[in-house]
Structures are given as C-alpha cells and as structure tokens.
Simulated assay, not measured.
Amino acid sequence: MKFGFLIDDKAFKCEEFEIAPVLDFDSILKDFKNSRSVSNGWFYGPEIELVKSSSEKKHFASNAPIVHKSFFQMSSTHQITSTEN
C-alpha cells in the first residue's frame, strides 16, 4: 500500500512488514522540488486567484487576491508491504 510523503529515501524493515520508497521516488521528489513554494520548513499548495463578485469588480480596480489552496493532493513517496505469508 502506498502512503505518506517524506523527502527521505530510507527504508525500514522489521519481522512483519517493510516500509520503502516507491519505485518513482526520485521523480516524485524532483517534481515536488520544482513545483512547490517553500519557506521556513513549510511548503504551500498551488496558488489560485480568488473570484471577485460583479459588485467587487465594479467598485475595486485591484486584482482578486492570490492565495494558496488549503487542500491539495501529493503523490505518495513510500509503500508498506507485509512480509507475512
């Protein structure tokens, strides 16, 4: 089962299961580093421009605010596999 997001490619193996990076880990990490806004250890979702109402468009000359999406999906970087038969 694929799950989580971690920039560390270390694997962990114990008696009953193994956690390891997915096969396309390097590609996922490269895409993350090329597309995400990062500051002080936090990363932010894609930017979106909010929509102004027709009244706001009429009364305010400025563009609508640009914000970061509060919910977004990321590709899983690791998978967990059972070692039990």
Rank of each mutant, 00 (worst) to 15 (best):
M1G: 11
M1R: 08
K2Q: 13
K2Y: 08
K2G: 07
K2W: 05
F3N: 05
F3R: 03
G4N: 02
G4P: 00
G4I: 01
G4F: 01
F5I: 01
F5H: 00
L6E: 05
L6A: 06
L6W: 11
I7A: 08
I7M: 14
I7F: 12
D8G: 04
D9L: 09
K10A: 13
K10R: 12
A11Q: 10
K13M: 12
K13Q: 13
C14P: 03
E15G: 02
F17A: 08
E18M: 10
A20W: 05
A20L: 12
A20S: 11
P21C: 09
V22L: 04
F25Y: 02
F25Q: 00
D26V: 03
S27F: 11
S27A: 08
I28H: 01
I28L: 03
I28P: 00
I28D: 00
I28N: 00
L29C: 08
K30E: 11
K30N: 09
K30C: 09
K30D: 12
D31H: 13
D31Y: 13
D31K: 15
D31Q: 14
F32K: 00
K33S: 11
N34D: 15
N34C: 10
S35E: 05
S35N: 05
S35I: 02
R36P: 02
R36L: 07
R36A: 05
S37W: 10
V38K: 08
V38L: 10
V38A: 05
V38I: 12
S39V: 07
S39P: 04
S39K: 12
S39C: 09
N40R: 13
N40C: 07
G41A: 02
F43I: 02
F43R: 01
F43E: 00
Y44C: 02
Y44Q: 00
G45S: 01
G45E: 00
G45A: 01
G45R: 00
P46E: 15
P46V: 09
P46K: 06
E47R: 06
E47L: 08
E49I: 03
E49R: 03
E49V: 03
E49A: 03
L50Q: 12
L50N: 06
L50R: 06
L50A: 10
V51N: 07
V51E: 14
K52C: 04
K52L: 05
K52I: 04
S54L: 15
S54R: 11
S54E: 10
S55W: 09
S55T: 14
E56N: 11
E56R: 09
K57I: 14
K58D: 15
K58V: 10
F60D: 15
F60T: 14
S62D: 13
N63M: 06
N63H: 10
A64R: 01
I66L: 07
V67K: 04
V67C: 08
V67T: 09
H68G: 02
H68A: 03
K69F: 06
F71K: 05
F71R: 05
F72S: 03
F72R: 03
Q73R: 10
M74P: 05
M74F: 14
M74I: 14
M74R: 11
M74L: 13
S75Q: 15
S76H: 10
T77G: 01
H78R: 02
Q79W: 04
Q79K: 15
I80N: 11
I80W: 04
T83Q: 09
T83A: 05
E84P: 04
E84L: 14
N85F: 11
N85M: 12
N85C: 11
